[in-house]
Design a protein around this nucleic acid. Structure first.
Length: 278
DNA sequence: ATTTTCCCCTGCCGGC
DNA sequence: TGCCGGCAGGGGAAAA
């Protein structure tokens, strides 16, 4: 499940091979990928355009085109982007689209569960909302992500801190893996009301989020389910998880058995001793 | 307005 | 062996 570190890993790899290239072909095998737009409209907006930059906002990838439009992609649960690098690409029955570049290479959007989406945003596409980025919260790996900003995002919230971290309007890019790992590192119980954290806890949580996301990027992401990088390689962050998916295992810090609960419809893992309920 | 629940999808896994 | 229910979850819509 690609979260910020996984998307950032893909962004950095794609940046090297896509920026400056012109898109010569776009084949959409699964129209659901571009819903509600039509494959023909997306193809018309993209083919013949040069890619000028590759950005990221939260878990979204942004492909800037020389037309002024932006292609926005979200991998959701099982989406992958694979760059051919000029080598033969093995058959993939989950391929949803193929982008052809002017150097003869291809970028394939593959997605087993078909939750992934791709949009074209720009002045010529008024049917698609252009304010998506404004709805997202602060970018956690920027200087703007201070304890004060995190505190403001959590103040007065009655929902659990875990649910608040998963809410992309608070902080952008955190998913189930890094929410669990950040709360573990900060020693905060996932069921705590978001608004009940004191200043020390907020500072610890901010530091833990930044640290876990940075380590995640350094490890090339977590390949828990189907995540792979643009060359099909696994990341190694899954080997460094201390609470997430570790139900029944001893806590690596104190030895207490890791517990699994459910928060916001998501499996949630914590250490009852290191992360006290109050 | 905030918070929770449901739903989209497919593959996998345990139970019978 | 094969069928079936349950589970996994990001995010948006709908409901509470």
């Amino acid at each position: 499940m690609p979260e910020l570190p996984e998307v950032e890993t893909v962004r950095r790899q794609l940046e090297d091979v896509v920026v400056g290239r012109t898109i010569t072909r776009l084949t959409i095998h699964d129209p659901l990928l571009v819903t509600p737009a039509s494959p023909a409209a997306v193809r018309a907006a993209v083919v013949g355009r040069r890619v000028t930059a590759l950005g990221r906002r939260g878990k979204y990838l942004q492909l800037a085109l020389d037309s002024g439009d932006t292609v926005v992609a979200h991998l959701r649960m099982t989406g992958r982007l694979h760059h051919s690098g000029g080598r033969p690409v093995p058959p993939d029955r989950h391929r949803r689209a193929r982008i052809g570049l002017d150097d003869g290479t291809t970028v394939d959007f593959s997605d087993t569960r078909r939750f992934g989406r791709l949009w074209v945003l720009g002045p010529d596409h008024p049917d698609i909302r252009d304010d998506w980025s404004a709805k997202l919260g602060v970018e956690p790996l920027t200087p703007q992500f201070t304890p004060e900003v995190l505190g403001d995002a959590l103040r007065g919230r009655a929902t659990t801190i875990k649910a608040a971290l998963l809410d992309q309007r608070r902080v952008a890019g955190i998913g189930n893996i890094y929410a669990d790992e950040s709360l573990f590192q900060a020693g905060i119980h996932p069921h705590r009301p978001a608004g009940s954290l004191d200043a020390d806890e907020i500072r610890a949580l901010r530091d833990a989020i930044v640290d876990r996301l940075q380590v995640g990027i350094a490890q090339g992401g977590a390949s828990i389910d189907r995540y792979r990088d643009t060359l099909g390689r696994r990341g190694t962050m899954q080997d460094m998880l201390r609470a997430h998916l570790h139900e029944g295992d001893p806590c690596p810090v104190c030895g207490t058995t890791i517990v699994k609960t459910r928060v916001a419809q998501r499996g949630t893992y914590h250490c009852p001793s290191c992360q006290p309920a109050s």
